[in-house]
């Protein structure tokens, strides 16, 4: 790798870690102006920066505000670089359908999981908040997802997770998807009881769980 390109990627990574959106814009535009491969810039720059931010989060150097700022910087760079990706440079990604179950609108945990999964190389379909069980199943079938990730913060909406599993079974497609669950009131015991494939207590664990289930 030429020294200049390496430096550019390092600067991109650092700009993400330092939550510096303006600098990300400058550097991402430099990538395009200098005809540097956009995929490499995303992979070696932006994603590495977010990976480092995730490490700092795990080490309790960064907390949720810092992680959100880093992700904003990363997405700013992605918006600039994505249109310049060559179609052949991206391999097939494993797909995750994620959302907050019906009746619940708390989505910060879900968003953190989405960010961490996305930067770990997964293709994410984010259904947002207050998602009916059937929509998880329909979407997962439509896009041939690998994982269905369900989140809730409320005890009154936990049953929606079980309903997703029930629907998958009813439609005889349960074995086509891995179902993972998380959120404040959720536990490994609850995941087991409803027939989910796994439970994660935080975003970093969710990434590990997803990788393990799809290995």
């Amino acid at each position: 790798m030429p020294r200049e390109k390496e430096e550019l990627f390092k600067d991109l990574k650092n700009a993400v870690v330092e939550m510096d959106e303006d600098q990300v814009v400058v550097l991402a535009n430099q990538v395009i102006e200098e005809s540097v491969d956009a995929f490499e810039a995303i992979d070696q720059g932006l994603a590495k920066g977010m990976e480092r931010a995730g490490q700092l989060f795990e080490e309790e150097e960064y907390f949720i505000p810092e992680l959100l700022m880093c992700s904003d910087a990363m997405y700013t760079g992605l918006d600039i670089l994505k249109p310049h990706l060559k179609p052949t440079t991206e391999g097939k990604k494993q797909k995750v359908v994620i959302g907050v179950v019906e009746g619940d609108t708390h989505d910060i945990g879900k968003n953190l999981v989405r960010i961490m999964l996305e930067t770990s190389g997964f293709e994410i379909t984010d259904l947002g908040r207050d998602v009916p069980p059937a929509r998880f199943v329909d979407t997962a079938r439509e896009i041939s997802a690998d994982i269905i990730a369900l989140s809730t913060l409320m005890t009154t909406t936990m049953d929606g997770m079980q309903e997703v599993v029930r629907l998958l079974e009813k439609q005889d497609v349960r074995n086509q998807f891995k179902v993972i669950v998380g959120g404040g009131p959720i536990s490994a015991a609850f995941a087991k009881r409803i027939g989910a494939d796994g439970y994660a207590s935080n975003a970093a664990e969710a990434v590990k769980l997803t990788k393990t289930l799809l290995a």
């Binding site: 005890t155 936990m158 009131p185 959720i186 536990s187 015991a189 609850f190 009881r193």
Partner: peptide, 9 residues
């Protein structure tokens, strides 16, 4: 006590 497991499980 864990509220969810206590109240629901």
């Amino acid at each position: 006590s864990d509220p969810a497991t206590t109240g629901l499980e």
